[in-house]
Write a protein that binds this DNA or RNA. Structure first.
Lengths: 218, 218
DNA sequence: CTGTTAATTGATCAGCAGTCAGTGTGGGGA
DNA sequence: TCCCCACACTGACTGCTGATCAATTAACAG
């Protein structure tokens, strides 16, 4: 089979970037429809109208593809945080915004939950380092804005950012396991599943942490 | 490591339990030596001196095996917490103990990091529900002791426990990615890897959360 | 010793990520 | 205008995985 009906060869760098974007977009659609486990490189190739081998010209591994998707989601979250949260916001308001950003940015939570244990652990060194640099830069950007809006003392800025990031990561995990369809769950554990839904567990914790730092104990 | 020294076939329930324990023990050894990805059912069977099919008489899937190992580690952590932490401990002391327990209980952190994204997501319903019940009971036991030693008000007990568990989960993730051998890491990201080592990120966060609740903000 | 039960086996299966020798396209040199 | 060859693309293939099941055989009862 020759190249797909409406697809030419990608020659220029722009065309290659466009093709990679098309692959990422197809992957997003597949995740929406079939979940993470439903994404196989064969199926993705079919969906994108390419041969399996072609995918590997644009992405070094399946996990690198996920990493690219996550960086994109993370970039969105950081941008929204910087845009939405301003100086003067209360701890509760900041917690509310963080919860909202994480929850409504597509793919952010499920990818964050899988970032370390699934994605990072099966990526070659070079792409991993490249991704780490971007993620660290984004984290730093986010932490800096957080320090600014909370007016926290300089020596508390890092612990605060770390505590919130860890809570976010943990909440993403719990959320993943609570995403399950409740029908078919045994009665005695159904409530436990819903108890760990993201907003319900993260927002109070974030508020707790933010309040602890924003209203210094006398 | 061959099996049949004493037992040729496991007939009684005791013998079956013993055989399962032997399989779990072999799995632990393999994780120590070759990491999680080094554990394959074929290799594990060989190591345990059994045929691959035999493993599946004692464990319904590879992930259920990991789940069993985690429950064991979790049980140890909860028992140590109840034994080590008593009424009157300061926030800093409690944080110190939690950090120590998580870090020194074999397999606890790496398994906790993989619990949701890797293990739970590939376990059949029945064994998952059974495991959830045990884990929820252990969590409740841990939370109850925590509420007792912190003398926290009843309405803050659940948020406190949830916040600490989420931080622990998040810290386990970060720790997993910081476990990498630093040699060979590019200079500019080496520090970032070590920054997220478990004790360094979890303990201050736990203390922050505990202090926020133990010394009411008034 | 013989028949029955069920624990054990390992060849086999299906499905996966990733590879590579081969194909043919299209931009650039003549 | 034509031709040529670099290289974008292809898909059958490899090697590995977790899991299965018909055949085997140990253990025990009578």
């Amino acid at each position: 089979m020759t190249v797909g009906q409406n697809i030419k060869r990608a020659i220029s760098e722009d065309q290659k970037a466009e093709r990679q974007a098309m692959i990422l977009s197809a992957a997003r659609d597949m995740i929406d429809e079939a979940g993470f486990d439903g994404v196989t490189m064969s199926a993705l190739a079919k969906r994108a109208g390419l041969a399996k081998g072609t995918l590997y010209l644009y992405v070094r591994s399946k996990e690198e593809l996920f990493l690219l998707l996550f960086i994109e989601a993370m970039r969105t979250v950081v941008a929204r945080f910087k845009g939405d949260v301003a100086l003067g916001y209360s701890a509760a308001q900041i917690a509310r915004c963080m919860t909202d950003h994480a929850q409504t940015t597509p793919l952010f939570l499920p990818m964050y939950a899988r970032l370390v244990a699934v994605i990072e652990s099966n990526v070659a060194d070079e792409p991993l380092f490249a991704a780490k640099r971007q993620l660290l830069a984004l984290s730093a950007e986010w932490a800096e804005h957080l320090a600014h809006v909370t007016r926290v003392s300089p020596d508390m800025a890092e612990p605060l950012a770390t505590a919130l990031m860890m809570s976010l990561q943990g909440a993403a995990q719990f959320d993943l396991s609570s995403q399950r369809d409740p029908t078919g769950l045994p009665e005695d554990i159904r409530e436990a599943f819903s108890r760990y839904a993201f907003a319900r567990s993260f927002e109070p914790s974030a508020r707790l942490i933010l309040e602890a730092v924003m209203t210094p104990p006398k």
